[in-house]
Design a protein around this nucleic acid. Sequence first.
DNA 1: TATGAATGAGCTTTCATTCAT
DNA 2: AATGAATGAAAGCTCATTCAT
Lengths: 202, 202, 202, 202
Amino acid sequence: MSIKQQREAEILAAACRVFRRQGLHHTRMADIAREANISYGLVYHYYKNKDELFDALLAEWWDGLYAMLERDLTRAETIDAQLRILIDYFLEQYEQNPDLVHLFITEVSRSTVNLNPERLNTFRRSIIRTEQIIAQAQADGALRTDIKARYLSTFFLGALETMISTMVLNNQPLKGKRLKERIAENLLAQFFDGARPVKPRR
Amino acid sequence: MSIKQQREAEILAAACRVFRRQGLHHTRMADIAREANISYGLVYHYYKNKDELFDALLAEWWDGLYAMLERDLTRAETIDAQLRILIDYFLEQYEQNPDLVHLFITEVSRSTVNLNPERLNTFRRSIIRTEQIIAQAQADGALRTDIKARYLSTFFLGALETMISTMVLNNQPLKGKRLKERIAENLLAQFFDGARPVKPRR
Amino acid sequence: MSIKQQREAEILAAACRVFRRQGLHHTRMADIAREANISYGLVYHYYKNKDELFDALLAEWWDGLYAMLERDLTRAETIDAQLRILIDYFLEQYEQNPDLVHLFITEVSRSTVNLNPERLNTFRRSIIRTEQIIAQAQADGALRTDIKARYLSTFFLGALETMISTMVLNNQPLKGKRLKERIAENLLAQFFDGARPVKPRR
Amino acid sequence: MSIKQQREAEILAAACRVFRRQGLHHTRMADIAREANISYGLVYHYYKNKDELFDALLAEWWDGLYAMLERDLTRAETIDAQLRILIDYFLEQYEQNPDLVHLFITEVSRSTVNLNPERLNTFRRSIIRTEQIIAQAQADGALRTDIKARYLSTFFLGALETMISTMVLNNQPLKGKRLKERIAENLLAQFFDGARPVKPRR
DNA sequence: TATGAATGAGCTTTCATTCAT
DNA sequence: AATGAATGAAAGCTCATTCAT
């Protein structure tokens, strides 16, 4: 990793921490520079402006999400496995980089004003991709068809995202494989089988 | 209704429209004044500053939500009826005042930086109240107990909120009793019975 | 006293109290109205604007001071009696209306920006008048001549004014004839005989 | 002297000039910037706000005054020498930096609203210190004791301050050693020996 | 690469004053 | 006489961004 890349990573990491603490709009370029222990002029040496810095910060997240959707999801065979992959991806991301996920949740997932058109497009494609997976499962007879794929998909993603949000907003760390597994299983159980008292299927 | 109250309502309505169009942070007091066809000094005559104006705007929403929780939810007998009330409340709010719900979704539901402590507290109590309802239903044998009330509650609220969010972010109007009913029923069906192909219960 | 005059007096009294508390430049017209228990629109009914209100407030003080100089001072025979009259006038004014004297000391005596040309003129004439009295006493052989009248006058007025200022700034009330007498006698004693240990004159 | 210190000095000097011309409350930050030939924002780069700028301006004056009191006054042997030092300090300050002394006289010496608590404290200590010197001289038999130290001190400082004020308010420059000496001697002569025609002491 | 001085547009806020009622 | 709604000029202050060094 070159010195330049190192500096860029440092700045991004610093920006991420400050954004989490203060929110995107209450963060000054000077705050980021101070957090990174550099002068604020230098931030501009690496990033053209605040928007570009913010965008660079999201880039890794987006790229990872989209790549995952294309690669892993397509490969998985059952809808159970596919949704599990989706859940695991988010939980792992949160475990590894909670600040970045926090940023996504608070500044992006519910408002599009902060996104440039390209990112917004990636965002929409991700959601549509999930919907397609659901629709395919319906066609395969693996999911009920009396609820539109669009709704099922919304319900699933909403539950997942809110799960993460709750942890984010309460500053809950996500430590340990066991906890992640339980969350994933609970979410899938509710999604597939519902919240009614468990009756042995068949 | 006094002139004062009328003006306050006009300003709040104008603010709501502008906030929706431009987002909280990209809205200037001058924008609100222009939208309300008054001088910007007058906005300050009625509201001390932007934060207080924003807070006043949320107050109706919060007060309505919390009052509903206390009144209607407690009265309803089954968990099905209770959750239906919750869903209906949000859908009706969105139907009647989509801008305000938009504001809630984009500026509040996923970030707490814009909230003063009192509002934040009301917010948290609402979530806890929902959790209590779920827990009670578990105790009554109406909901499965192998998933914590906290998780079930999160999944439900997440699905509901994302449903609304999707409409909000796509600027979908919600017109007509039929559409609201279908959405509510779909959400409840998924939540209670799961996404698996429908097998006749019992 | 007509109702109109009563109202004007009330407003002036209220203004005087607020000016003392907050200073001329930190006082809003609304503050004065609130202190007088009237609407701020009404203040404008009686006084054209803030400057005119301030000027009206000073008018009594000025008029009294100037009249006294013309009337009493001229009549008194010795320089001792004349200066005593001057001192008594200030001390009595302070006793009766400390807020007004406070205003004079803090907002007028050391800065002329707040005065309109007419008032400024009266102010200057008062000082010149005092100087003339001193000069006359010098000519009569009652005061030393090796110090210019201008200086002697300055020293005397400065000592007097600072005496009052000290009481003003420390919020000392001036109650009782005895205290006033002692202050006056001390001031005259120092001015005439100096601060050296008392040696019997003659 | 660093560039930063230079700029700060420039801004202070500019502020001092504008304050003198327009008065503290009629001076805009923009006026100061224009006077210093710098951009508006740069003033804020160096001083947080107008109050802090004003305070920084007074700091030199205060610090000098207080240091002088502690150093020179304590060292001088007779009360004559001590008061002469006090007078000389003010006259020299005025000669060197009339604008700053003007500011002190017009905005500070007669009103405390513009002072922060720390400066106010220093101000009060200076006055008390002078009083102590007078009291000591009384104890030593060098000054009369039938007038309280507090009054003698007030009379002296009042005469001195008004002397300076008169020059300040009339925009009299103070040029030349001779003039300063005469003023000082006159003031001391009046203070010590009084205004009566001179009778040879002893 | 690095600094932070310098800029100024743009925003919030204040408040004297006017005016309809 | 009385009110307080309404106006908008005039400040104060912020901060993204540029630029000389």
